[in-house]
Amino acid sequence: MMWPSIALLTFVTLQRLGELVLAQRNTAALRARGAREVAPEHYPMMVALHAAWIIGLWLLAPGRPVEPFWLAIFMGLQALRLWVLATLKDRWTTRIVILPGVPLVSSGPYRFLRHPNYVVVVGEIAILPLTFGLPGYATVFSLFNAAILHVRVKAENAALKSAMILK
C-alpha cells in the first residue's frame, strides 16, 4: 500500500516549501527593521542537504510501510515545531538573522532549550527515514546534518554574543 508513505512525504514536502515562503517573508521584514544576516555562506549547503534528504526519501520511501512507533515520534516533533513557530512568530526564519537590541525570546520551548528548532530538525532528519524503515539513510543524513549544525550553532551563538543579546 503506497498511499500512507506518499501522504507523509507530501505533508513533509509541502511543510518545507511553506516554511521557506514564511522564512523569506520573515527575513525580509526583519531586515526592514534593521536586522542583519550572519554567516550566510553555509546556508546553501543546508538547503541542499534538506533538499537531498527529501528527494532521496521520495526515491526510496514510496511503497514502504510506515512504522507507527516512529510516526508517533515524528508527529510529536511536529507539535514541538508548531510550538517553536508560535513562540517566535515573525522572528522565525531559516537564516541566522540578528535584530540588534531586541532580547532573545525566552518563552515557550526557549524556557527549556536554547535552540529547540534545531532539536526538531535533528529529530526529523533521523526519525522520518526510520518511519520508513531506512536506518542507514537516517544515519548518513544525521551525520551530514550534525556537521552543518555544528557550523550554524557556533556562528549563531557568536553573533548573538557580539550583539550582546546572549550572555
Score class of each variant (00 low, 15 high):
residue 1 M to P: 14
residue 1 M to D: 12
residue 2 M to C: 15
residue 5 S to I: 07
residue 10 T to Q: 11
residue 13 T to P: 03
residue 14 L to T: 14
residue 18 G to N: 14
residue 21 V to K: 13
residue 21 V to I: 12
residue 22 L to W: 04
residue 24 Q to R: 15
residue 26 N to F: 06
residue 30 L to V: 13
residue 31 R to K: 15
residue 34 G to M: 05
residue 36 R to P: 15
residue 39 A to Q: 03
residue 41 E to A: 10
residue 48 A to S: 13
residue 53 W to D: 02
residue 53 W to C: 01
residue 54 I to A: 06
residue 62 P to R: 00
residue 62 P to G: 10
residue 64 R to N: 06
residue 66 V to Y: 02
residue 66 V to L: 05
residue 68 P to H: 05
residue 71 L to Q: 06
residue 71 L to N: 06
residue 72 A to G: 14
residue 73 I to H: 03
residue 78 Q to P: 15
residue 79 A to G: 13
residue 82 L to Y: 09
residue 83 W to C: 05
residue 85 L to G: 09
residue 89 K to Y: 13
residue 93 T to M: 00
residue 112 F to K: 09
residue 114 R to A: 07
residue 115 H to Q: 15
residue 118 Y to D: 03
residue 121 V to D: 05
residue 122 V to Y: 08
residue 124 E to M: 01
residue 126 A to K: 03
residue 127 I to Y: 02
residue 128 L to H: 04
residue 132 F to K: 03
residue 133 G to Y: 04
residue 136 G to K: 07
residue 136 G to R: 06
residue 137 Y to L: 05
residue 138 A to T: 08
residue 138 A to H: 01
residue 139 T to F: 04
residue 141 F to E: 04
residue 141 F to D: 03
residue 142 S to W: 05
residue 143 L to S: 15
residue 144 F to H: 03
residue 149 L to Y: 11
residue 149 L to V: 09
residue 150 H to E: 05
residue 151 V to N: 02
residue 153 V to S: 00
residue 159 A to P: 10
residue 161 K to A: 10
residue 163 A to C: 10
